[in-house]
Design a protein around this nucleic acid. Sequence first.
DNA 1: TTGAAAGCGTTACCAT
DNA 2: ATGGTAACGCTTTCAA
Lengths: 339, 339
Amino acid sequence: MITIKEVALLAGVSKSTVSRVLNKNDNVSKAAREKVEKVIFEQNYSPSAFAVNLSKRKSSAIGATIPELDNSFFGEIMKGISEVAEEREFSVFCFDTSNSAHREDRALQMLKHQRVSGLIITPTSERTEEEDARRFRDSLNNLGVPIVVVDRHIDGIALDGVYYENEKSGYVATSELIKAGNRKLAIITGDVQLRIARDRFQGFKQAVADAGLELDEKFILKGDFSIDTAYRLTKEMLESGDIPDGIVTSNNRTSMGFLKAVREKGLKIGKDIAVIGIDSIDILDILDYKFSCVARDSCEMGRVAMRLILDRIENGTSQQIVHHVPCELILKGSERKGN
Amino acid sequence: MITIKEVALLAGVSKSTVSRVLNKNDNVSKAAREKVEKVIFEQNYSPSAFAVNLSKRKSSAIGATIPELDNSFFGEIMKGISEVAEEREFSVFCFDTSNSAHREDRALQMLKHQRVSGLIITPTSERTEEEDARRFRDSLNNLGVPIVVVDRHIDGIALDGVYYENEKSGYVATSELIKAGNRKLAIITGDVQLRIARDRFQGFKQAVADAGLELDEKFILKGDFSIDTAYRLTKEMLESGDIPDGIVTSNNRTSMGFLKAVREKGLKIGKDIAVIGIDSIDILDILDYKFSCVARDSCEMGRVAMRLILDRIENGTSQQIVHHVPCELILKGSERKGN
DNA sequence: TTGAAAGCGTTACCAT
DNA sequence: ATGGTAACGCTTTCAA
């Protein structure tokens, strides 16, 4: 592979001059610049990032760790990151951590080795023990670069972040159910160990309270963001005979479990029970399955995260910045019973 | 950030010795090794990949370009790549090309700049003009590193590849429809500009021929792998009044468009019309929607691609290697009419 | 077994 | 405006 030295030789100038035109430095005569540019073009020369990074002591790459790339929600985040990265001439090292803390640790190590100049992280949901959580925070600090957290939270450390309007999403979904005439309200929560689950639940409770409605304990189904649990809880509820008017499902997996159970019982949403989910489920639209939800633009979350980290990298540190991408209400009819 | 020099200083040895323990070179006394390891551990030292790569003139990173990460099929491929990469201590630069040839070109440039030692590419489907296709092949060659193509094909250049059993998937789907008693068969093809679409179609035709059945031209619906086209074609067919017994849908998007149209017409698959799709659609299982298909393990495609490229990087070049990941028949009942 | 020094491909400073 | 040169952090060769 051709080097700057050979370019200089071919153009009849010094390495310094070549470097100057590469870096758009003004102190180059038009003649020299043109000669160099010609050679660069002809030889298809591209400087070695290794050498540049080493010399400049900074890299034009960032790292991104994502818990499950096969979940299109995270795929979209990655897509958004990639989009902005390309515009700004940054490369991104991408790691799928499979929701495993161990793999996340490994990814962090490798990113340190690569000397990335920033990290975008959607953490695994597995750092429950305090000791482990502490070590995790240490490795993050140890990286010594700007960090932007996406979607899920990392406790005990003030980091920039891009989050969904979690509480608001719960509030909006619930209010809308109420507006549509539902009085007996239920929710299948997410894993309440996680802040995003608690926040969504909080929004639910607030909306119920604001409407002056009573909350029945047995209609608070404690789920964990998994399909299976949501399915089981819904089934139990439906079989108990006491059915709420409307229900909020805390994320897309929860919605799926709920829908499965409802379907099995031969019931129909928007007729026998009202529902608004948090998160959209693309295929349902495609199949023209009327499912109302509170959605978000996850691709935009990735874009915002990437912009944020570039900002940090370029303008150094200042106050913690936290973005919230708005939630968007999409009504299809399932928010109202008796259709 | 701490360097090898400081580690050497702290351990009371030379940089050379530190380098030796880093590279697991045997010519180091036990005493020296232990001192060095202690310092490395205490200081949490990790060598700079820049410097190592520059010095060794090779990198421990590969590039991956993917057309649409928000499509979980490609997300799974990326997940598989990431999985094996981690095991083998490789980092991967990931680019979402959004199915745009331009962005793909840019990605290739950036990967050249990063001096990756290999490329895994699922090409965009946009290189129709010969001139453009040629320039594309040139940039691939210009990279000067091993390349593994995944899923889609690149014409006019012999590259290692990991593909789906396309023809077989069409054959199996069709045979199964026939076995279930369907005589009047239809297919919604993919974009026949693409080899994977032609191959699947070929499998379909072969199975029909092998069964000694007649093929009606009007039941060959020329789609393009998009939901919308499949929807339109299906709708037209259903409205024409002449409906086939069974149909093959050429990929997941095609299946969705088909299902949408069928649903709109108030028909039911497995009752009014039989269908087997190529590619699975996860959520349908979850919703317990009986949809038979011929599926594949796309995560495995990523794993195989990564193993293949590492092999190339480590063992140099030899004969072209092409892998085919097997297709798997999943019957749910929709392959038979009248249920 | 060890260390010194040259070299990897750049940038940046200092002269000119 | 231009070139020479040290430096970036590592590996590798050569001597000892």
